[in-house]
Simulated assay, not measured.
Amino acid sequence: MTESISILCDNVCLSGVLHLPEGIQDKKVPLIVLLHGFVGSKVGEHRLFVKAARKFTDKGYAVFRFDFSGCGESDGDYADVTVSKQLSEVQAVLDYVSTLKEVDTKNIILIGHSLGGAVASLTASVDKRIRQLILWSPVAKPYEDITAILGDTALQTAKALGVFDYNGFYVSQQFLEDLKNHYPLEAIHSYEGQLLVIHAAEDKDVSKENAVYYSESLKCGNTGNIRYIKDANHTFASYSFEEQLFEETLVWLEKSEVKANKIAL
């Protein structure tokens, strides 16, 4: 079951889709919120987030995927995007999904891909509603990781003109300067929930070393919460990579749920 949702945040309408598992009736279920990355959308490359949402709802999870402002079907223009604004938008989304009668508000899970991984980590470090955090090929050092993707010419152009045209998206100097204000590896020290990092082993866009950085940044750093998808690229662009990504995610979620229940007892 899917429903298109529009959420108002700072006079901008964010376009989202809510997926609910069948047959839940009055039962409350765990909710996964999917955060896309740099110049991405709630559909995802090769429909990654659509496929993920369907896979997870088949396993009994509710899923909410949405476009940040300036992306996909949401209002706004990418020239006005900053990570600071995206953090506010995630809060608006979490406030909305927390009101849904079908959602177990004590079991909200954030999954962030690429830059969405950094945004998810920054959010989880301050929002106690996040019980579990899953990062797919995450950005760890926003300014360094994103500027490495853009290259020097883009940085020089943005500094001179205020924006750079990156594949049809205006990336602004304001966006680049704002990246310098965010340190997810430091922020995650404050996160008290459970973390899984899954990185593409052949990622040419975002270093797979980021998985280790995140794991070691936790209070109880433990590299046992890292998985690598062999031969995969940054967006896990094959059915084989996708299936491994989803399966690793679901197996970990199931084990985490069992562990949490034992602790509660």
Rank of each mutant, 00 (worst) to 15 (best):
T2D: 11
I5H: 09
S6Y: 11
S6L: 12
I7F: 09
L8A: 12
N11K: 15
V12F: 11
S15F: 11
S15P: 08
L20S: 06
D26N: 14
P30H: 02
L34C: 12
L35T: 00
H36A: 06
G37N: 02
F38R: 01
V39E: 04
G40V: 01
V43W: 06
E45R: 15
R47S: 13
R47E: 14
A52W: 03
A53M: 03
F56M: 13
D58R: 14
F64M: 12
D67M: 07
S69K: 09
G72Y: 09
Y78T: 04
A79I: 11
D80N: 13
V81H: 07
V81M: 13
S84M: 08
S84V: 03
K85L: 10
K85N: 08
K85R: 11
L87S: 05
L87F: 04
S88P: 00
E89D: 01
V90H: 03
V93E: 01
L94A: 02
Y96T: 00
Y96F: 13
V97G: 05
S98K: 08
T99F: 09
L100R: 15
L100M: 13
V103P: 06
K106Q: 12
I109K: 10
I111E: 03
H113L: 13
S114A: 12
S114H: 08
G117Q: 07
A118T: 01
A118C: 12
V119A: 05
S125Q: 08
V126N: 10
K128I: 05
K128Q: 09
R129T: 03
R129S: 09
R129E: 09
R131N: 06
R131S: 11
L133H: 04
I134L: 15
I134D: 02
L135Y: 03
L135N: 02
V139P: 02
A140S: 14
K141M: 14
P142K: 01
D145Y: 02
D145A: 02
T147R: 03
I149K: 06
I149L: 13
I149P: 02
T153G: 04
A154Y: 02
L155E: 04
Q156N: 09
Q156A: 10
T157P: 07
T157I: 15
G162W: 06
F164V: 12
F169S: 01
F169A: 02
V171L: 03
Q173S: 13
F175S: 00
L179E: 01
K180L: 12
L185D: 04
E186M: 06
I188M: 11
I188Y: 12
H189V: 06
L195C: 07
L195R: 08
I198Y: 05
I198T: 00
A200I: 01
A200R: 09
A200V: 01
E202D: 14
D203P: 07
D203I: 00
K204D: 10
K204T: 08
K208L: 09
N210E: 05
N210M: 05
Y213D: 15
Y213S: 15
Y213I: 07
C220H: 11
N222I: 05
N222S: 12
G224L: 09
R227W: 10
Y228G: 03
Y228C: 05
I229Q: 04
I229C: 06
D231V: 06
T235R: 11
Y239R: 15
Y239I: 14
S240M: 11
F241A: 15
F246T: 00
T249I: 00
W252G: 00
L253P: 00
L253E: 00
L253T: 00
K255T: 00
S256C: 13
S256N: 11
V258I: 14
V258L: 12
N261A: 14
I263Y: 08
A264W: 10
L265S: 12
